[in-house]
Every structure is written in C-alpha cells, then in structure tokens.
C-alpha cells in the first residue's frame, strides 16, 4: 500500500492532481498574458502597416519618398546642427568664422582694387555675388563626395533614408551661404551700392536652380564614391577647372564680347558652348540680381542679355537640373540598398 516515499497512494494521487492543477494555472496565466498582449489595442493588428523586404531593389517613387524623408527630417536637422556645432566647437569665434571668410575677401579685394586698379567697377560686389553661389555649390559637392563613406558606421548600423547624408552636407553649405550672403547684403547697404528691384527677381530663381543642381550633383558623386574612390580625387580637380570655366572672378560680359565679336576667328557658337556650363547662367543670375548693371560706366561686366532672356536660360537650367536630380536621386536610391555592404 505504501510506496518507497512513505506516501500513501492517495497522497500520490493528490500530488498528481496538484500537478495537473498547477499546469492548469500556468495555462491560465499564459492565456492571461496573451489577453493582456491583445488588449494593448484590439485594432492594432489591422491598423499596422505591412512592410516587405525582398531581394529586388525598390524603384524610387519620388512623392512617397519625399514623405518618408519628411518623416525622418529630425535626423537631417540634427545632422546639420551637429555638423555646424562640431565645425565651430572649441573655437572662440564660433560661427563668426563662417562670416569672416567673405569679410576678409571683401577687405582684401577692396584693398587690391584700390592699389592695383581694376577695370571692373565695384569689383567686390561683383566678385562676391558670384563667389558665394559658387561656394555653396563647391562645398556641397566637395564634401558630399565623402558624405556616405565618412558615415560608414551609421550606414552599417542604422536604418534610415541614406539621402539624408548628402542632403545634410547641402544643408550645412546652405547655412553658410545664408550667413555669408547676409554679410554681402550688409556690405551692399553700407557702401550705398543699392539694389535694382527689377533685376532682383532673378535672385530666387537663380537660388532655386543652384540648390537643385547642387543637390543633384551631390547625390551623384556621393553614391558613386562609395564604389569608386576615384571620384573624390576627380571631383577635386573638376571643381578647380569648373571654377575657372565660370565667370566668377572675371566678368562674363568680356567673354561674351570676345566670343561673339564679328572679327573673332572662332565661331560665334562658342558662346553657346560656354553657356552650356549650367553654372554660368546660375552665377550670372546672381550677379545680375545683385550687381545689376551690365555695363557700368560703359565697361562691359555682365553678359549683355535682357533679364527676361537670362531668366529664360536659367529656367531651362532649372528644368534640366530637376531632370538631373530625378536621375541622380534614382541612381542614389538604387545604389543605397547596397551601401552597407560596400563600405
């Protein structure tokens, strides 16, 4: 009757029963936890969006993507903030450095022009109105080249829209552009150079075109540089040549005169070729908006075209830039799926 444990069969039975009871309780608890899980929100199962990842690279749907980028705008803003902060941290003057650059430029050129003489009247205004635009472009493209590979650790460890990396570089360049433009503005006001309201219309158009073109190119070089590190060296050289191909330090009007002069040995089409550089109309737009006078004191400085004509050319560049942006963005988007692997 008694087993080796000194327990009566009855108590063994009771033991077994309590085991069953315990497992029932456990099951009940489990159900309760399931219930609790479900009670979180009954509609959540239907409300949650389903995401699917496959081997195929997604094709870019710009509107949806822009919405996604907007949802991640916090990252972009934080990255720009970080970049600016880091750039000027531990420096006493901080952001003043950014502004100091054009101030020194203005001072030096004012001085040089006074001493050496220069055929271009109000040369500092002419120079800076083009140079600031160029700076935005070259800084963004130059730094943008390395934007993905320099953030390799982030790319490998965090999922976020990769476009944010080149965009943040453009953003930082934009902030500098705004600060430096403020200096130029003050200079124009302080020296009494003044504004020409009808030419000023070109400013927003040129600015928009510049930003679109810069972004397009930054997407392109940053994506390509992930696979071919040649790009960063190539870009350094290309920017140097590009700078001198664009009428920034020399007046575009003179180029126009030389190229379309009837006595010139070359074809007048060269001027058209010269204009193929998209930055020429953009920079000319900025110059026309701020420097305003085409031939001050009879000296040809800016290309001799009407504001409407110039606006038309810039408009064409804008459309071209938008198409280019669509292309390079698509390319960037396609390649960005493999960034984490390539780095």
């Amino acid at each position: 009757m008694w087993d080796t444990h000194g327990r009566s069969p009855r108590s063994a039975e009771r033991h077994r029963t309590s085991e069953v009871a315990r497992s029932c309780v456990a099951r009940l608890e489990r159900t309760a936890s399931d219930l609790r899980i479900h009670s979180r929100s009954p509609d959540i199962a239907t409300a949650l969006s389903v995401t699917e990842r496959t081997s195929e690279s997604l094709s870019l749907r710009p509107v949806a993507r822009i919405r996604e980028l907007y949802a991640h705008r916090e990252i972009l803003l934080n990255l720009i903030r970080k970049e600016l902060k880091v750039k000027y941290n531990a420096s006493i003057l901080g952001a003043i450095w950014s502004v100091l650059n054009p101030i020194v430029f203005l001072a030096v050129f004012t001085f040089v022009v006074k001493v050496m003489g220069n055929s271009t009247p109000h040369y500092p205004v002419f120079l800076l109105s083009g140079l600031l635009a160029w700076n935005l472009f070259s800084v963004a493209v130059g730094n943008g080249t390395r934007s993905v590979i320099d953030n390799g650790n982030l790319v490998k460890k965090v999922a976020f829209p990769r476009e944010i990396l080149p965009l943040s570089v453009v953003g930082v360049a934009l902030v500098d552009f705004v600060l430096q433009s403020a200096v130029l503005l003050l200079f124009i006001l302080a020296t009494g150079y003044g504004f020409h309201s009808e030419a000023l219309v070109l400013y927003p158009l040129s600015f928009l075109t510049l930003v679109v073109f810069t972004t397009a190119l930054t997407f392109w070089v940053s994506a390509l540089n992930v696979r071919y590190r040649d790009v960063q060296h190539l870009i350094g050289l290309a920017l140097l040549v590009w700078f001198w191909m664009t009428p920034i330090v020399y007046p575009g009007g003179i180029v126009q005169d030389k190229l379309i002069a009837p006595t010139a040995p070359w074809s007048p089409h060269l001027w058209t070729v010269y204009l193929l550089n998209p930055l020429t109309p953009i920079v000319s737009g900025f110059q026309r908006a701020l420097y305003a006078t085409v031939s001050p004191g009879g000296i040809r400085v800016l290309p001799d075209v009407s504001i409407a004509q110039l606006a038309g050319v810039i408009g064409v560049v804008l459309v071209g830039s938008l198409l280019l942006l669509l292309y390079t963005w698509r390319l960037f988007f396609r390649l960005s799926g493999d960034f984490a692997e390539e780095l």
């Binding site: 389903v50 699917e52 990842r53 496959t54 081997s55 690279s57 999922a159 692997e341």
Partner: peptide, 15 residues
C-alpha cells in the same frame, strides 16, 4: 531592419 538587402526570400513585418 533594412540595412542589408536579402539575396533571395521575403521578410514581412507589421508595424
């Protein structure tokens, strides 16, 4: 997480 792309197969998630 979407950092890497699978070579084949499907990953599906809700939320």
């Amino acid at each position: 997480a979407g950092i890497l792309r699978p070579t084949s197969g499907v990953i599906r998630y809700r939320g």
